[in-house]
């Protein structure tokens, strides 16, 4: 095979895969009738509520570490008093959505892929079809919407907890006054900073749920197949989040 052919074949593959995933996500999101409300409610709890501890802890430690870093780094150019503002902007625009998204990817993409993959290899997906129920609407749609709706909420919670992490460090060991710290946090924060982070959260939620569902539905046979699907789902979700973050940051702030 000539190199040009090889490149051509790879490009075609990639275009095909992107098309297939787009179609899959589009179908999953917008074919809403019949709508399985009970399944959505269950997923809102699974994906949103139960991820809160992980995302909260991640944000807390990140905000705290950020405050320490900026304090010591900022001291080099006499800027340590902007710690609260930079922690707030850094959390809200970047670290809240990205780290929150990555933690959700680890927790949720894997469990979705494992659950759907297991259903596939134990013929439960086939059984759904014979019971006149579309697996896309029953399994995929509730998960996609639950993630799109809850991850921004998780990001918002993470933003607040992260800023509080910075506040804890700032007031306990960096010598800030409590009220002054909070006032400085809010002073430089614009609403677009917050909103852009929440939009990122929705996009990352979609990426997480979509890769879990996609790989789960394509799981190979047996326990090995499910294991491979789970691994692929987490890797795809994490890489997808970081790539999407770069693209969205460019769109929002350039």
């Amino acid at each position: 095979m000539t190199p040009i052919r090889l490149v051509g074949r790879i490009v075609l593959r990639i275009i095909g895969a992107v098309g297939a995933v787009t179609l899959f996500v589009g179908r999953g999101l917008f074919r809403l009738h019949p709508f399985h409300g009970r399944a959505l409610a269950g997923q809102l709890v699974q994906i949103g509520w139960l991820s809160l501890p992980v995302v909260g802890l991640t944000a807390l430690f990140t905000g705290a570490a950020l405050a320490l870093q900026i304090h010591s780094g900022g001291a080099r150019f006499q800027a340590s008093d902007v710690v609260p503002a930079i922690v707030a902007i850094g959390m809200v625009r970047e670290l809240g959505p990205v780290l929150g998204g990555l933690m959700v990817a680890a927790r949720v993409a894997s469990s979705i892929a494992a659950e759907i993959g297991t259903m596939k290899v134990t013929e439960q997906i086939d059984a759904l079809v014979t019971l006149s129920t579309d697996p896309m609407r029953w399994l995929v749609t509730p998960r996609l919407w639950a993630a799109v709706l809850t991850v921004p909420v998780l990001v918002a919670a993470g933003d607040i907890i992260g800023i509080m992490g910075g506040w804890l460090v700032g007031t306990r060991s960096l010598g800030f006054g409590s009220a002054a710290y909070l006032a400085n946090s809010a002073a430089y924060l614009e609403s677009w900073d917050v909103l852009s982070g929440l939009i990122k959260g929705a996009a990352f939620g979609l990426i997480v749920a979509a890769s879990g569902c996609w790989w789960g539905m394509r799981s190979g046979r047996g326990a090995e197949g499910v294991g491979r699907a789970t691994k692929s789902a987490v890797v795809a979700a994490a890489v997808g989040i970081l790539a999407a973050n770069f693209v969205l940051t460019g769109l929002f702030f350039e």
């Binding site: 259903m119 134990t122 059984a127 014979t130």
Partner: peptide, 10 residues
């Protein structure tokens, strides 16, 4: 249909 492994929804 009865599936070979039962295929009950977990």
């Amino acid at each position: 249909m009865l599936f070979q492994g039962g295929a009950l929804f977990d």
